[in-house]
Amino acid sequence: MHIPDGFLNAGVSVATGVVAVGGGAVALKKARDELDDKSVPMLALCAAFIFAAQMLNFPIAGGTSGHFLGAALAAILLGPYLGSLVLMVVLIIQALLFADGGLTALGANIFNMAIVGVYGAYVIYYLLKKALPRGRTWFLSSTAISAWFSIVLAALVCALELAISGTSPAGTVIPAMVGIHALIGIVEALITVVVAGVVMAARPDLIRTYQPAGNLTVREVA
């Protein structure tokens, strides 16, 4: 889903770039407020973690494979602002170091994955959390649903950008991208649920957006 240079027109590049810079400024401010400057190592390790996790390819069907995005996982573990910041760091490193995603499309890629993907997942997770009773099963179900939506929403805005830029005809690129990613989203949901389940069993205090029922105190991490 990393759009290279040359696929977007000037309007789309500039518009998404402005939103991305705004989103970055908000996320950095929130990071300073929530964590203060000193917690850089922790956030950086989360970013390096997402980066390394994206290297694990998973099977989709037969021979094709996809890889984990981690937007919903980051949103649920770290909260929307820090999650978005971590995804941005990953995307910037991928663009600069691997040429994975173009520099003039960096704004669009940040918008799709770090903003729409992370905040979209968080909004859905948050609404489900309000609507559903507390408990492990419900937590994991809302995790799965928000992970699926994070992929599909990111793919949808990516397809819209390509269509608006005149790179692909809207009538075909939107159903194609959304269709493929509806499938990839299932695997993303599966993996996110497994990860969330294991983290919940091992270190429930690391899930910033979830407080388990009962009077378990959440340990403040340095």
Partner: peptide, 12 residues
């Protein structure tokens, strides 16, 4: 999923 979870715990 298990690998990624382990990776996260170790990273954090």
């Amino acid at each position: 999923g298990h690998m990624i979870a382990t990776l996260f715990l170790r990273s954090y």
